[in-house]
Structure formats: structure tokens, C-alpha cells
């Protein structure tokens, strides 16, 4: 009888736990839908609204054109979505390659140690001490510029922080008591890697990958903005912003503010996604 009485008392905190988990899941789903929507929007919208309509040029934001129109009468919302989709895809590709490099080097540095570790740390230090954007320009220029140049430059310069995080995680886990104990119990190294390392490293990798996206996208936009990245006839977000610079002083604020705001929003969405994913996947916080 007592047991049945005391059972409901323990229920409320359990329910709250579920709510927190559900909230985090909802945030992840919401963020993913928003970003996926932006990425696939060009295929849904098609090319309508991108043609020049000279009778409707330089119109401020209104209900028919939420982002206004540019100096050729093109709908800025459509252009921004097209540009952002392209930039997101380039950023995603570059960030994924970067995450692969970072994970590989981080794992090697953490597990092999010795001079390999020293070399990797030295490379990371060199990358940290060079100004990021200047290094990006140098790499993009060295491999020949264009879309390929941007992808290679972003991929080659963004892996350092992730490599550091993964190396630190591997070092920390491999010196933990339960891993030492597991080793003493005679578990094979692969078994330890599978059961003790992977649960700690995979969340870091996923979250690190997602948190790399905003950096990659912003740097892609920055490179395109200064004219070294994507070619000017592609509607990338950096190109749209660079074009709008020439029209800001004449009072057409919506050309720069609206696409810039959309870029900011999507970068923030990635950040939000990553933070929520971290709290859900990380063994330290997933039970909160």
C-alpha cells in the first residue's frame, strides 16, 4: 500500500524531464525544418521572380515583395533564398570535409601521441596564429579561386578547433578510471574504442560539425563578398550583399538589411541546432 502511495510523488520530476527532452527535440526539429526549407527553396520556388521587371524596380518591402525589389525589379526574397541556399550548400560541403580532417587528425593525435601529437598540435598552433580571413584569402587564391577555391579554403582552415576538442576528449577518456579498469580486465582495444570512446567522441563530432556550419557559411559569404569566392553571376549571399553595398548610400536599405538578416537568422538557427543537439547527445547532460 505504501508503495502505491509513494509512487505518484516521484512522478512529477520524471514528467518534467520528459518535457525538457521534448523541448530540446522540438527545437532541433524546428531548426532543421527552417534550414532544410531554405536549402530546398530554389527547387520549390523555381526561377519565377528572378526575371527583370523594370516597372517594379527599387521598391521598398511590401506584402507582394516582402524583401523589396532590386534595381532590376527582381524580387529580393527569391534572390536571397536562392543565394542563401547556394551558400548553405557550399558551406555544408566545406564544413563536412573540414570535420572529416579535424576528426581524423584529432583521433590520430589523441591515440598515437608522441611526435605525431606534437606535429598536429604545431599545425593547429600555426593555423591559430594566422589571421583567419587572410589565410582563407591566401588558400583560396593559391588553389585558383572560384567555387572550388572557396570550398578548399574553408575546408582546410576550419578543422583546427574540432581537432583540438576531439584530441582532448580522447585523451581525457583514455585516462579515465573506467577505461583503465576495462583495459586491466583484458578488453581488446577495439572493444574499448567501440564501447567507451565512441559514445563520447561521436556527440562531440556531430555537435562540432553543426557548429562548424555557421563559421563555414559566414566565411564563404565573406570571401564572396570581397570578390575572391564564387563568380559574380552566381546568386550567392555574399555577392548579393556586395552588390547591395553600392546601393546602400542611395537609401535602398532593404537590399542589404533583408538578405543580411536572413543570413544572420540561418546562422543563428545552426547555432541553436548545435547547442540543443549537444545537450541531447552529450552523456554528461543528456539525462538532465
Amino acid at each position: 500500500m505504501r508503495l502505491t502511495v509513494s509512487a505518484p510523488q516521484t512522478l512529477p520530476p520524471l514528467k518534467q524531464q520528459n518535457n525538457r527532452r521534448k523541448k530540446t527535440l522540438a527545437a532541433i526539429v524546428l531548426g532543421s525544418i527552417f534550414l532544410l526549407g531554405i536549402i530546398v527553396s530554389p527547387w520549390i520556388l523555381g526561377d519565377s521572380g528572378l526575371s527583370t521587371v523594370l516597372t517594379q524596380r527599387n521598391q521598398p518591402p511590401s506584402w507582394s515583395h516582402p524583401f523589396g525589389t532590386d534595381w532590376l525589379g527582381r524580387d529580393m526574397l527569391r534572390r536571397s533564398l536562392h543565394g542563401l541556399s547556394l551558400s548553405l550548400r557550399v558551406g555544408l560541403l566545406a564544413a563536412s570535409v573540414s570535420a572529416l580532417i579535424g576528426t581524423g587528425l584529432g583521433l590520430v593525435a589523441g591515440t598515437v601521441g608522441g611526435w605525431v601529437d606534437a606535429v598536429v598540435i604545431w599545425i593547429i598552433d600555426v593555423f591559430f596564429s594566422l589571421p583567419h580571413l587572410v589565410l582563407l584569402i591566401l588558400v583560396a587564391f593559391a588553389v585558383g579561386g572560384g567555387t572550388r577555391g572557396v570550398i578548399i579554403a574553408v575546408a582546410l582552415t576550419h578543422w583546427t578547433s574540432l581537432a583540438r576538442v576531439i584530441r582532448a576528449e580522447v585523451l581525457q577518456v583514455s585516462s579515465a578510471d573506467y577505461v583503465q579498469l576495462s583495459r586491466r580486465l583484458g578488453k581488446p582495444p577495439l572493444w574499448i574504442a567501440r564501447h567507451h570512446m565512441v559514445p563520447h567522441v561521436v556527440p562531440q563530432l556531430l555537435v562540432g560539425l553543426i557548429l562548424l556550419f555557421p563559421h563555414a557559411i559566414l566565411h564563404e559569404a565573406a570571401l564572396s563578398f570581397i570578390g575572391i569566392g564564387l563568380s559574380p553571376h552566381l546568386p550567392a549571399i555574399g555577392i548579393i550583399l556586395a552588390e547591395s553595398m553600392r546601393h546602400l548610400s542611395t537609401g535602398y536599405w532593404w537590399l542589404g538589411v533583408m538578405p543580411g538578416g536572413l543570413l544572420l537568422l540561418s546562422v543563428k538557427a545552426f547555432d541553436w541546432l548545435g547547442e540543443n543537439m549537444r545537450s541531447l547527445l552529450d552523456p554528461k547532460t543528456s539525462q538532465e
Binding site: F128, S129, P131, H132, L133, I137, F225, I226
Partner: peptide, 14 residues
């Protein structure tokens, strides 16, 4: 300090 150079690239362009 390294941000200084990256920032100056963008700001001077603007």
C-alpha cells in the same frame, strides 16, 4: 589580435 586583420579586410572593403 588576429581578428584585427580579418576584420580590417571586411571593414576596409565596406
Amino acid at each position: 589580435l588576429s581578428e584585427l586583420f580579418g576584420g580590417s579586410v571586411l571593414v576596409e572593403q565596406v
